[in-house]
Design a protein around this nucleic acid. Sequence first.
DNA 1: AATGGACTCAACCGCATAGAG
DNA 2: GCTCTATGCGGTTGAGTCCAT
Length: 320
Amino acid sequence: MGHHCCSKQKVKRGLWSPEEDEKLIKHINTHGHSCWSSVPKLAGLQRCGKSCRLRWINYLRPDLKRGCFSEQEERIIIDVHRILGNRWAQIAKHLPGRTDNEVKNFWNSCIKKKLISQGFDPNTHNLLSTKKKANNNYTTSSIFTVETSLSSSSTKELVSMDLIKASLAALSTFPNYTNMPQCQTSLSRLYGSVCVPTTTNIIGNSNFASTIDYKKQSTIINENCMWSVTGFETPHHEFGNGHEEMKQEGQVQVEEKNCQEEVLYKVNDLHEFNNDGPRIAENVTFDEGSDFDFEFMDSELVPCGIFTNLNSIDQLAWNC
DNA sequence: AATGGACTCAACCGCATAGAG
DNA sequence: GCTCTATGCGGTTGAGTCCAT
């Protein structure tokens, strides 16, 4: 079965010959590629436009970086994948000179196995646990297994590996972030190479909002934020009149213990309360002044357990 | 040296989406 | 609003290569 774009043409398939590459390079360098469907004809190639485009983007483009992925690139892929999932094109945008295809292949052939061998689920980035509950019937206590008395002033203290592992294990028991029974949650914050589990109390209509914990030198995203923006479900009956008022005002406030900084944001539009499905916050706007890279987050966040940047839990896991 | 399984990665396939008419 | 076409993207395939036996 051929492509719909070239089904009427007699096109060559399979590997490209050096002659074909040369023709394509010459044509694009001279005329550009404003319309890929016309490139084969103009370049004298018996290929479909789609094939030409792919060959150019993935192989012939002059700005491509060839060769092995560096350790830093690998880490970026893992970090961005944790947030965006299998959105290879978006991930590749954070790696100059790399293509989505290249990133995807590298993930499937190398990183995926590495994560699995380290005991992480490559899809969720959670610690693979043999103790997961079979029916997803989570109880309040499941997420509270990790609590510490660390104060905000002690975030630079080193935390033992046992505590970190316990934190990961606790989060891994909570894979989907749906039907969460209440709005209190354990929170693991990552500061450089230090993992600091804290306890978060969320007040108000909290599944529509949260705090973004950010610093100038390293962006820190807590998973509470992820839950909020993705709009995890909470049973309807949990909301009282006070929350209805908040909804009408279109602004919610979240209080978080042990947070160093808080950024409040407004929720301009909320879906109607509904017993049947998840309620999703839309058109979320953030106060100016935050240096958080929202383009990086690509506006649509994927639930997962741990967020980190360089030198964080990945490195710890890698070196264990 | 031969062979077969594992692995890599370029290329293809099918679907989603945007835009033009 | 509908259809058609082009483009972009993620999943999958398969030829070539590597490596253990």
